[in-house]
């Protein structure tokens, strides 16, 4: 108890010193979950890029999927007296005490990409995408694309029970509700992976008359779509024409598939969470403007019309 107070004291002292030295050259701590996916790696790259552009000194800590590492990182950021903390929390619970420490040290915390279960006065704001919205953007695209034609859709879900799987399914179903021409005929989990996406698509094709019965595929992420596209090709069908493919995430590989005409649309889950976060932070630092408690990033729709090859070139070096 004593020692944490001492650290706290030192933290406050240090942060005061830092603030007095310069308001512009901010120091921001970033506790990242890890690098479990390409998207996560791209988020890290973009956060670092954004910080560099703004002249922010970014202290990066990789937690390797462990909450205790994140708590340690946060405590050390507080002790170092950073001006703000970006946190991509690995789990939702268990953050109260460390967030309170940050609050006492008057260090604003911004959550990236995922939420925590703590009271919302413990953090400045949360930046993230709306998963339900992503699903509905994908659904809306399909509705518009079909323009009333009959269509049997198969769905590759994410990992059963995960919130992206639940919410992206929900958004898509909301969007196609009321359109009697669109029917969701099969839905199975592909665990967000290419291998399972391919395997499950193979079984969909077998089960639905060699695929002749399927008009569109909705995949909860691009990786599963990439796997499924291969399965469709191996079954002797043309993905993108015989079977429409729409998915979510907008990772580089799907743009290649789109450029080849094998995928039709993807909804971007932007890895640039840091940009809006830094903007909100700058406004708050400047004149105390309180941002909203949730900043929703744009869920941009890309189609074959958006020069997928160019987007691919632009995205491929982000670390996806």
């Amino acid at each position: 108890m004593k020692s944490s107070k001492a650290i706290l004291g030192a933290g406050i002292l240090a942060s005061m010193l830092m603030m007095s030295s310069s308001v512009l050259a901010q120091t921001v701590g970033f506790s990242q979950i890890g690098s479990e996916s390409g998207w996560r790696a791209a988020e890290t790259t973009l956060t670092q890029q954004q910080a560099k552009e703004r002249g922010i000194d970014l202290k990066f800590a990789d937690a390797q999927q462990k909450q205790e590492n994140q708590i340690k990182a946060l405590k050390s950021f507080i002790a170092q007296g950073v001006d703000a903390i970006l946190l991509a929390p690995v789990v939702a619970t268990g953050w109260d005490s460390v967030l309170e420490e940050a609050k006492e040290a008057e260090i604003p915390v911004i959550l990236l990409d995922r939420m925590v279960d703590s009271s919302d006065d413990l953090y400045l704001t949360a930046v993230g995408s709306d998963l339900v919205h992503e699903g509905s953007v994908a659904g809306k695209w399909l509705v518009d694309e079909l323009a009333g034609k009959d269509c049997n859709v198969v769905e590759l879900q994410g990992t059963t029970g995960s919130s992206p799987a639940i919410d992206r399914k929900k958004g898509f179903e909301e969007a196609i509700a009321g359109h009697a021409n669109i029917k969701l005929i099969r839905s199975q989990t592909g665990d967000f992976t290419r291998t399972k996406g391919k395997e499950v698509m193979e079984s969909f094709l077998k089960a639905e008359d060699g695929g002749k019965n399927i008009c569109a595929l909705y995949a909860h992420n691009d990786d599963m779509a990439v796997g499924a596209i291969q399965a469709i090709k191996e079954a002797g069908l043309k993905p993108g024409e015989d079977i429409l493919v729409v998915s979510i995430d907008a990772v580089p590989d799907i743009f290649q598939a789109m450029a080849a005409g094998e995928a039709n649309a993807t909804v971007e889950l932007t890895p640039n969470m840091a940009g809006p976060a830094f903007d909100a932070l700058a406004a708050y630092m400047k004149d105390g403007t309180m941002p909203p408690k949730f900043i929703q990033t744009e869920s941009k729709l890309y189609t074959q019309a958006d020069d997928p090859q160019a987007v691919y070139e632009q995205k491929k070096d982000l670390g996806y």
Binding site: S37, T193, R194, T195, K198, D223, Q230
Partner: peptide
Amino acid sequence: AAADIRGADANNAGL
């Protein structure tokens, strides 16, 4: 497994 999906997925291959 890698040849099947034309890519090496370090996180999920053989999981």
